[in-house]
Nucleic acid binder design. Structure first.
Length: 644
RNA sequence: GCCCACGUAGCUCAGUCGGUAGAGCACUUCCUUGGUAAGGAAGAGGUCAACGGUUCGAAUCCGUUCGUGGGCUCCA
């Protein structure tokens, strides 16, 4: 029999394994890097023979995405083997590969300690040294069930029962056998680059009503070098952690006495926020949005009408005064709808685009709070677009373009996902289809690729979620566009059409940055605290060499401030090196050094954040340099707007 | 909310077996006037998260609450 293997014709004899076959087609180096084989869609163990009907085999190498997944999955088995050896009473559950690594959940009488992890990892290394084969076996579900039941592996029994199939497969390496579809690497010796990272609790099957299992996370890569790169990236991420930088750069703080998830913005952090917010206001005006503003608390009856009281109550804060109950808003849409309803609207008035930097409060579960990225009180750059059905597509396109423009300015890559109708939802199929198509149309029109997140939409309509990637390729959900059929219905929104009759408008909820708090957190990490000049709370700091120049420094400071530059002067009795070091640590973009020479020439010596030295520059030229660097993003789009 | 860990000076952290606290940086004062990442000296600063318990005695052991971190679940 002839088979095409990696583009070459290979003659295959009966009983040959895929490994034997690839040996003929690949170089020794390539063969060492071979993990599994692919035939069409199927990934195959190298230990198996050529399946019937397979005419073409492709190699899957260790460093390919699929190869890495196999390696990670196999490493999870390797870890389970080690855990069962060291802790025989632990019950195994599931152990999949995940991004960058894998985990395995165990049911054990106590949590694993960091020392346990070390022991487990050492045992894994021993197993790799022994280079044991991964052996696949096919058996009937009844046989497998009996086998795992005899071993007391109750979770595996449950899995087999739930699968409801005749035949299952298992993989065995060393003394450990796991229920698994495969495929796996042929031998443990191929697993050379892994590290156990952390232990955590996790619910069986992700359901909080189920028992808490012990989850061990690990990372695994094709080579030790790749592993090191990954671990270095984690180190880098730790240095950039916005919670650390927030303290170091004096941007914000949290206080026990205030409460969890409530941010206190210090002068510099509040300034960056204000710059961001101003920037957003301008960008919204450019795009035909109108500013609106509603109160923080609204009567409870209104939340009952909107459905929030029934569906969202546990996340809301309430207050009462004069025997009247109020809900503290977790969303801004109600005020916006009431503004729309405040008068009769013509089809000519649509779309109405209401924008508000709305402060919302959501009582998030205590365990989910996380720095600025998950808080209980935050500001959304929220807008509600109320439009005619025939305008929906263009409005969505406008929002997606807006998102793209903004993310480009900050240098974020992003990914789009469309979430479709969930099981529990309201509205007609027709409405859902039309809205979902409008979302897809908009992304197609923009030539933006997207993933479908089936059944993950809000109960009132489908949505586009935009996840941005920071400098370390971590993804954060910020922007979202959601279609809503419910609220216009519940609040009886209408417009008078060309035909003189009342019609129901469609409403879009959307945010661009998401929440100012979260976006600030992502920005801090993205830039490692070194904000671009236009956002930097201090754009230039004057550093005097000795206090003989302090008088001159005051004059220079006033000059820069008059030019609209956020400048300050460091006239402390410290050495220049010390002042430079501090300015550097504070990530100030421009350091303007003034000594006797500079006083004499009415100039400054410009040092750029990062160390570059521009040298002696006349004062007005220095101001020009800083201002030039500070205006960049506002020029984009070439549109004019009026905003003072 | 759940599991685990943690909470000591403004920050980063030591503190052994239970015997009522220590460093570096920052801060204040003085000396120093020094040209691109830390000049020197002295001083001040802490109900050891809070509350309760055990004990002759608690930062240390136990409990509760609050907060933080890593996850789960949820989400901007």
């Amino acid at each position: 029999m002839q088979v095409t293997v990696a583009g070459q014709q290979v003659s295959v004899e009966a009983g040959m394994s895929l490994a034997d076959i690839f040996k003929q087609a690949l170089s020794g180096k390539q063969f060492k890097n071979l993990v599994v084989a692919r035939c069409g869609e199927a990934l195959l163990d190298l230990t198996t023979p050529v399946p019937a009907g397979c005419e073409t085999l492709e190699p899957v190498f260790a460093d390919s995405p699929e190869g890495l997944e196999v390696i990670r999955h196999s490493t999870a088995h390797l870890m389970a083997e080690a855990v069962k050896k060291l802790f025989p009473t632990a019950k195994v559950t599931i152990g999949p590969s995940v991004e960058n690594g894998f985990y395995y959940d165990f049911d054990y009488e106590r949590p694993f300690t960091p020392e346990d992890l070390e022991a487990i990892e050492a045992e894994m290394v021993r197993s790799v040294g022994a280079d044991k084969p991964f052996a696949r076996a096919e058996l009937t579900s009844a046989e497998a069930r009996a086998k795992f039941a005899a071993e007391g592996e109750t979770y595996k029994v449950e899995l087999i029962d739930d699968l409801g199939v005749e035949q299952v497969s298992t993989y065995t390496q060393g003394g450990f056998t796991d229920l698994c579809r495969g495929p796996h690497v042929p031998r443990t010796g191929l697993l050379k680059a892994f590290k156990l990272t952390t232990v955590a609790g996790a619910y069986w099957r992700g359901d909080e009503k189920n028992p808490m299992l012990q989850r061990i996370y690990g990372t695994a890569w094709a080579t030790p070098k790749d592993l090191k790169v990954y671990l270095d990236r984690l180190e880098e991420a730790k240095k950039r952690d916005h919670r650390k930088l927030g303290t170091a750069l004096d941007l914000f703080s949290f206080h026990e006495d205030v409460g969890g998830g409530m941010v206190l913005w210090h002068p510099k952090g509040a300034l960056v926020r204000a710059i961001l917010e101003d920037f957003e206001r301008k960008e919204h005006l450019k795009r035909g949005y109108q500013f609106v503003q509603g109160p923080l608390i609204l009567r409870r009856e209104l939340w009952e009408k909107s459905g929030h009281y029934d569906n969202y109550r546990e996340n809301m804060y309430f207050t009462e005064i004069d025997e009247q109950a109020y809900g503290i808003k977790p969303m801004n849409c109600l005020s916006h709808m009431l503004i729309y309803k405040s008068r009769l609207r013509s089809y000519r008035d649509l779309p109405q685009r209401y924008f508000e930097l709305g402060v919302v409060h959501r009582h998030e579960k205590s365990g989910v709070l996380h720095g600025l990225l998950r808080v209980r009180s935050f500001t959304q750059d929220d807008a509600h677009l109320i439009c005619r059905p025939d305008q929906l597509r263009d409005e969505i396109i406008g929002v997606v373009k807006f998102v793209r423009d903004i993310m480009d300015i900050f240098g974020f890559d992003f990914e789009a996902e469309i979430s479709t109708r969930p099981e529990k939802s309201i509205g007609s199929d027709e409405d859902w289809d039309r809205a979902t198509d409008a979302l897809k149309d908009a992304l197609d029109h923009m030539q933006m690729p997207y993933a479908i997140n089936a059944g993950d939409g809000a109960f009132y309509g489908p949505k586009i979620d935009i996840k941005i990637k920071d400098a370390l390729e971590r993804r954060w959900q910020c922007a979202t566009v959601q279609c809503d059929f419910t609220l216009p219905e519940r609040f009886d929104l209408s417009y008078i059409g060309e035909d003189g009759n009342k019609h129901r408008p469609v409403m879009l909820h959307r945010v661009i940055l998401g929440s100012i708090e979260r976006f600030m957190g992502v920005l801090i990490e993205h830039f490692a605290g070194a904000f671009p000049v236009w956002l930097a709370p201090v754009q230039a700091r004057i550093l005097t060499v000795t206090d003989a120049q302090n008088g001159h420094a005051e004059k220079v400071l006033r000059f820069l401030q008059e030019k609209g530059i956020r400048a300050e002067a460091d006239v402390r009795n410290e050495k220049l090196g010390y002042k430079v070091r501090e300015a550097q640590l504070e990530r100030i973009p421009y350091m303007l050094v003034i000594g006797d020479k500079e006083v004499e020439a009415d100039s400054v010596n410009v040092r750029v954040r990062g160390g570059a030295d521009i040298g002696l520059v006349p004062l007005d030229e220095a101001a020009r340099i800083v201002r030039e660097a500070a205006i960049e993003p506002f020029k984009r789009g070439g549109m004019s707007y009026s905003f003072s």
